[in-house]
Design a protein around this nucleic acid. Structure first.
Lengths: 184, 184, 184, 184
DNA sequence: AATGAATGAGGTTTCATTCAT
DNA sequence: GATGAATGAAACCTCATTCAT
């Protein structure tokens, strides 16, 4: 692993555990077994590290959205599937997502990415609901509002899963919950 | 307004806007038009200010829970009512709730309070669902899991409301969403 | 007891226990059950309190010296008596002496008083030894040097007594020690 | 000289001259021509600097005690020799000893070290007096008490030498004083 | 590329002192 | 005389960043 990636990996772990402000460059260097100066060979600033983490997450998310879009285009998309896929996406990017969630109240760049998450998921869900209605599977409910509600469920469960791992996992039951509410 | 309350009010505003770490005592003093030393006449430490804010919120929340419990005992409680009441509670304690949400990843005392929020709301929702099932209004669904799902919706909407005020308000539609899913 | 005396008494206790710097005006006021402002009605500054304590001790010491001088003038003075009397003087002014000992490395006024202690005791001891030699009771030793030695014994024992109260008390044996060394 | 040693040397000088509390990190940095932050690269806290100074002194003292013990074991030890050697030891560690003397009323670690000084010197003196009595050179006096008296003389002279350098040096005469008192 | 000592701005906190009541 | 809130300078300490090696 290259030094830059070691720094990124270590920073991810630290920031997700203690938060951005308590993840000091000094600690980061110690934990990563490098010198503090080295950090600045690879990143312009401490915030720059976070930007790299967020950029990588943004890329992963765009892949995820793209794959869902493709399924949508092939008529193979259901609400259930989106939820299952998103939960899988979070599982694979657990640390990164946690960082985004813990910093979007503090940093503009993080808030920007979170907005992208919101908007894209909302749009996908809208399209999926629209499709369902057209197909006759989904009840005739207001599309935008219900997409937003499903989104809050998805994000709420994500947060519960990441920050309260001792709570029983209700992701499957949540899908049932939505099915009952939306499917005919 | 007494100095202590000025400090508290100013701190609330600052912390909710820029987060706990960026709300420095120096800035706080300047904004509140007092000297830094004065802060320490009224609070033991910067963290102590936060503890006071959280303690006040905890008290407000306990009142809220109590009032819901009373309605439950009188059989006047519906899921819809809990959601409406909680949204009203958040509206009245907007800044405080936002502070809790932005600090529970960083501070134990804040996480403790958030856990109280989770646990109490979950229990109330469970009791309410149980009651509904007994009365025959609510479908025969797994109680605990569905209470948790409703709770994630409630908290998710709260967060959406506080951090993304430009999003259209779907709280009413969310209630409909739950009715469709749970009511017979 | 007047407020001024309450302050002095409380300050003595505090300074002798935790030292001048750790005896804060805030603590002093709390312990004395008065307000911080009141301190400054009676004393110009925190150091001024110390000066009053030292001045009182200086006065007591001058009484002590005077009484010894009178005995000397009446030919009723022995080394033994000076030692016994000084130990009694310390016993009566324990706290004050301890304060002087703990501050003379830090404060000029305190060092000045300590110099007075040294000089006066030295002179008295010199005169006493001279008298003893003249009378034929004391060996013919260098007066000044031996007075200084006896003085270091006296001050050393005082310090031992005040700071290491668990050490066995050797003040009586110390007198024997000096008798063996100086008396014929 | 390395930065750490510069800091230590400067701190020694400052603390011995103005005391621990008045030796501020700000002043220390200015005097040592470094920034305040640098101090904390080399020491954990201001007190940590003092602990290093005391630890070094403790080590030197243990060497001193060991060397005296060796002489004792070889029967080459006299009270006179212990006094001369200790005075030499103080001469070589003047500043450090002064720091210990000025802080043992304030700091536990310093008081601990002073207790070590007391105890070790007392024990050595006791053994030396015992040996002298057995050999027939020393009068048959109570061992412990007389050891303590000699110790107070030694420490008293040390203090006189360090804090009152203008007083005439009576260390040689003090040895005579003890010889007259203890030797047959 | 890497190091790690040094920096200095700025953080939290303390405390002797003042002043309106 | 007394109060105690307020002050502000200065204390100790942290930490992102720089720089000579």
């Amino acid at each position: 692993m290259k030094t830059k990636d070691i720094i990124l990996a270590t920073a991810k772990e630290m920031i997700s555990q203690v938060g951005f402000h308590r993840a000091t460059t000094s600690n980061l260097a110690k934990t990563a077994n490098i010198s503090e100066g080295t950090i600045y060979r690879h990143f312009e600033s401490k915030e720059d590290i976070l930007l790299h983490i967020l950029a990588a997450l943004e890329e992963q998310f765009s892949y995820f959205i793209e794959s869902v879009r493709q399924k949508l285009d092939k008529d193979q998309c259901t609400l259930e599937m989106i939820m299952v896929d998103y939960f899988a996406f979070v599982e694979e990017n657990e640390v990164d997502v946690k960082i985004m969630l813990s910093t979007y109240g503090l940093l503009d760049s993080s808030k920007r990415l979170m907005a992208i998450f919101l908007k894209n998921l909302e749009l996908i869900l809208q399209d999926c609901i629209k499709l369902g209605i057209k197909k006759g599977n989904v009840k005739d409910v207001p599309v935008e509002e219900n997409a937003t509600v499903v989104m809050t469920i998805i994000f709420g469960l994500t947060r519960l899963h990441l920050y309260w791992p001792n709570e029983t996992d209700v992701r499957t039951e949540a899908i049932e919950f939505c099915r009952r509410s939306l499917l005919k």
